Structures are given as structure tokens and as C-alpha cells.
Simulated assay, not measured.
Amino acid sequence: MILGHDSIAVASPWVRRFVPAIPKDGRVLDLACGTGRHTALLASLGHQILAVDQDISMVESLKSNSIQIQALDLEGSDWPLLNQQFSGIVVTNYLYRPFLDELPKMLTEGGVLIYETFADGNAEFGKPSNPNFLLKSGELLALAHRSDLRVIAYEDIYLDHPKPAMVQRICAVKGHLKGCVPLQFGG
């Protein structure tokens, strides 16, 4: 299967920057994968991916030997990914606090969490504006701290592209960096 460059081109710059840190062995979870822009990026880099979302209609065409797709209720009473392990987890533009602490538990040793979503103050620029969908100041740092993840990079910033927004994002590793590709900074 050939993945479109358009999908990869719209991948988050934050995710593109840190995805090389994800170890090649094991599967990568694209949580709340939406249109599959990060699934396509991960597949282009040779990863095995589990792409999950409540509605998978936008990503079904990406299904391949390296991409498994599952429709899951990520906001039900039980965590649908319990006891699964991943070498990387990518989450963008999604927040459901009741299961946030489950993510670090699913990382294998050396696994990488790349998380980016809207933060407090975003209501000034439009949706999402509901505090339930906005990270509180330092919330991803607190998650990393209580989960014993090593923070590689963290930002809580205003972005003006692709549209004005307040965003919080983190790249963190469980345990040691063994097997990770050295990161290239500055781009």
C-alpha cells in the first residue's frame, strides 16, 4: 500500500520531530487517530501501528500488514486497551482524563509518549473551549512525574499555525533511551 504524502505532510510538526525516538521493535499506538495523519507517518517510517478511534471510517483505507485499525469506545466505563504494551504512543488533539494515567503504564521499557493537545486559554481562540478538553498548566509534566517518565521535551505555548491555539505537548520516555534513534533538533 502506498501512503499519501498529503497525509504525512499534515502530521503535527511536534510528532514529526520526536517520532524518530520511538524504538522500531514493538507496536505504536495512534490513540484517537482521526484521519490517520500520524498513522501514515509512522507506517512510512517502518513501524507496526495500532490505530484506534471511535469512528474509523477515515482510516480504514490505511489498513495493511503494518497497520491494524480498531474501532474502540475510548470514553466508556472500562479502558479498552488494558494490558496492551507499546513501544510508542502518539496522541494529538484528544484528552479524556479518566484514562490519562493508563498511557504510561502501556509503554514498554524505552517506550516513548508523544502527546499534544489544547491547553488552558484556548477558549480565547475558539474550540475546544470546554475545560474538560483543555490541559491544565503543567498537566502533562505532572503525568510524566507521577509515572516516572523522563521528559525529553515539553512546551505549554501559544501557536498561530495552523490556527491560533494554546497547546501543551510533551515527549517522554519510560526508563532508559536504549534503542532510540538520536534526535535531530532545530527543525
Rank of each mutant, 00 (worst) to 15 (best):
residue 3 L to K: 06
residue 4 G to V: 01
residue 5 H to C: 00
residue 9 A to V: 05
residue 10 V to I: 14
residue 15 V to F: 07
residue 17 R to N: 06
residue 20 P to K: 11
residue 22 I to S: 10
residue 24 K to D: 11
residue 25 D to W: 09
residue 26 G to R: 06
residue 27 R to S: 14
residue 29 L to R: 06
residue 29 L to N: 01
residue 29 L to H: 02
residue 32 A to F: 00
residue 34 G to Y: 02
residue 35 T to S: 10
residue 35 T to L: 05
residue 36 G to V: 10
residue 36 G to I: 07
residue 37 R to Y: 00
residue 37 R to Q: 04
residue 40 A to W: 09
residue 40 A to Q: 09
residue 41 L to P: 03
residue 41 L to Y: 05
residue 41 L to S: 11
residue 41 L to E: 14
residue 43 A to M: 06
residue 44 S to E: 10
residue 44 S to A: 11
residue 44 S to F: 09
residue 46 G to R: 09
residue 46 G to D: 04
residue 48 Q to I: 08
residue 50 L to D: 05
residue 52 V to Q: 04
residue 52 V to Y: 02
residue 53 D to S: 11
residue 53 D to W: 04
residue 54 Q to S: 10
residue 56 I to N: 05
residue 56 I to M: 11
residue 58 M to N: 11
residue 60 E to C: 07
residue 60 E to K: 15
residue 63 K to M: 14
residue 65 N to C: 12
residue 66 S to F: 08
residue 66 S to Y: 05
residue 67 I to G: 02
residue 69 I to Y: 01
residue 71 A to I: 03
residue 71 A to W: 00
residue 72 L to W: 01
residue 74 L to E: 07
residue 76 G to R: 10
residue 78 D to S: 15
residue 78 D to E: 15
residue 81 L to M: 01
residue 81 L to Y: 00
residue 82 L to I: 10
residue 84 Q to W: 04
residue 84 Q to Y: 03
residue 86 F to A: 13
residue 87 S to Y: 05
residue 87 S to E: 04
residue 87 S to A: 15
residue 88 G to W: 03
residue 89 I to T: 07
residue 91 V to T: 08
residue 92 T to I: 09
residue 92 T to S: 08
residue 93 N to F: 00
residue 94 Y to T: 13
residue 96 Y to C: 12
residue 97 R to W: 08
residue 97 R to D: 13
residue 97 R to P: 11
residue 99 F to S: 03
residue 105 K to H: 06
residue 105 K to D: 06
residue 105 K to E: 11
residue 106 M to Y: 00
residue 107 L to A: 15
residue 109 E to S: 14
residue 110 G to I: 07
residue 113 L to M: 01
residue 115 Y to V: 13
residue 115 Y to R: 07
residue 120 D to T: 13
residue 121 G to D: 12
residue 123 A to V: 02
residue 123 A to T: 04
residue 124 E to D: 13
residue 128 P to L: 10
residue 129 S to K: 12
residue 130 N to F: 05
residue 130 N to G: 03
residue 130 N to E: 12
residue 131 P to G: 04
residue 132 N to P: 00
residue 132 N to Y: 07
residue 133 F to C: 00
residue 133 F to Q: 04
residue 134 L to W: 01
residue 134 L to E: 01
residue 134 L to S: 09
residue 135 L to Y: 03
residue 135 L to K: 02
residue 135 L to G: 01
residue 143 L to Y: 00
residue 147 S to T: 10
residue 148 D to K: 12
residue 149 L to I: 04
residue 149 L to Q: 02
residue 150 R to W: 02
residue 151 V to S: 09
residue 154 Y to S: 05
residue 157 I to V: 13
residue 157 I to A: 11
residue 157 I to M: 13
residue 158 Y to C: 13
residue 158 Y to F: 14
residue 160 D to G: 08
residue 161 H to D: 12
residue 164 P to L: 02
residue 171 C to Y: 10
residue 178 K to L: 08
residue 179 G to Y: 01
residue 179 G to A: 06
residue 180 C to L: 12
residue 184 Q to L: 13
residue 186 G to E: 14
residue 187 G to E: 11
